[in-house]
Design a protein around this nucleic acid. Structure first.
Lengths: 225, 225
DNA sequence: AACATGCTTCGATGGCCATCGAACTATTGG
DNA sequence: CCAATAGTTCGATGGCCATCGAAGCATGTT
């Protein structure tokens, strides 16, 4: 009889747990101590929070040796958090955006795809070149786009057969504009790492491009300089 | 520096406030006392909660005479709540679905469009008849669908010109399947009330169809008996 | 075997906050 | 102007829970 929605909200409501969850939005699994440091609490406190988050089905655990790796439990959780971020950043005044996290704003991982300024630029470029059709919250891959990605080695048919949408726009909390999500968005990010154009930063959310990698990325994905 | 996301979550985290918010998901504005009754607390308590929700930009108020009407502040809030509902209902075992809220499960309002069993049936029927193309989270109105709704009096071009997507699928928390949202979904619900086929129930979320109204609805919108 | 590291459980402390009674303001209606 | 209704603020109470020290368990290292 008790409203279950408040239970989940209550899990996110604690500042320490919120820090843990946002730290995990990079999609990378982190250990209990790493999360304790990230959230700036003692290991005991973090442990208590983590078990609550696991019980509440927001996180999942993989035990490996003497480490316990935590991850967000599924896309739904990541989307919920992203939506909360959108709400909070749109609510407050956009006066100051501290220069301390410019790196995060330029290129970061949103669970499994590229976000930030570069993610938005990519999205815009694909739309401008006629690869994607942007329709507010709907996004569609055109025939031109399909053959383009096919040439890059994407098995478009396989992606389409899955339940997860191929293209999906995801509202960016820093840019407040669309970037590419969905299985195609995931593919692009994987491709970037695979080609060695960039690597994850230590904070697990921002992405560092090498000079050559950035150039190659822009050349391949049509982002104009 | 404090994680703002936890502030919003904290607002939803309290059971009483959660009750208030879900009561407002019907899209209808309710007065402070109505919400106090709905949430089963005294007016003082409700008042305190309501001012917090307004401060936190989750609700908006319209003063009218000696009443104060509360509403969800924008679609984003409604979507956030619906996503929370999806999470919580999918998380818990689907063993028992109490027969006490069958009415809610059959037909209810999800902010501004039709949800529940009937909403899902409508969506499926439109897809089956080739009016809509279902693509996971993307939904598209076909040419056939456009001319069909045009005949019913919908100004399709006007809807398409707006920023809000025309068709959008919205995951149903009770059925866990798609139903029609977006501006077209809103139009359908308005049409139902306009034609007098149904009316909002007192609890502001469930929708009561008259016998004739249900028949007419099914005839017009192609739902097979 | 002995020590180190990662993580947990237990218990005590302290702070925050939901709740309601009482009293107050504001609007409407006769 | 008085009574009734809608809603508020204030203050006291009580409960819940985040936090951390201390101790414990488990795994890995030498």
């Amino acid at each position: 009889m008790e409203p279950n929605i408040s239970v989940v909200a209550g899990l996110i409501a604690d500042p320490t747990r919120a820090k843990i969850l946002t730290a995990l939005m990079g999609g990378k699994a982190l250990t209990a101590t790493e999360l304790a440091i990230e959230a700036d609490v003692t290991p005991q406190t973090a442990s208590s929070h983590l078990s609550k988050l696991v019980d509440g089905a927001l996180l999942q655990v993989r035990k490996q040796g003497r480490h316990r790796y935590f991850q967000l439990k599924g896309l739904a959780v990541a989307e919920l958090l992203e939506q909360l971020l959108v709400m909070t950043t749109s609510a407050q005044s956009k006066v100051q955006t501290g220069p301390n996290d410019t790196r995060l704003q330029y290129a970061r991982v949103c669970y499994d795809h590229l976000a930030g300024e570069l993610g938005v630029t990519l999205y815009d470029a694909l739309v401008a070149k006629g690869m994607l059709i942007d329709g507010g919250e709907q996004t569609q891959l055109t025939e031109k786009g399909k053959s383009y990605f096919r040439e890059l080695g994407v098995d478009v048919a396989r992606l389409q057969s899955k339940k997860r949408p191929v293209c999906k726009s995801c509202l960016d909390w820093s840019e407040r504009r669309n970037h590419l999500a969905g299985s195609l968005g995931q593919w692009v990010l994987d491709y970037i790492f695979e080609k060695g154009w960039a690597q994850r930063d230590l904070d697990a959310r921002s992405v560092s491009f090498s000079k050559a990698g950035l150039k190659a990325f822009k050349r391949v994905f049509l982002v104009e300089l």
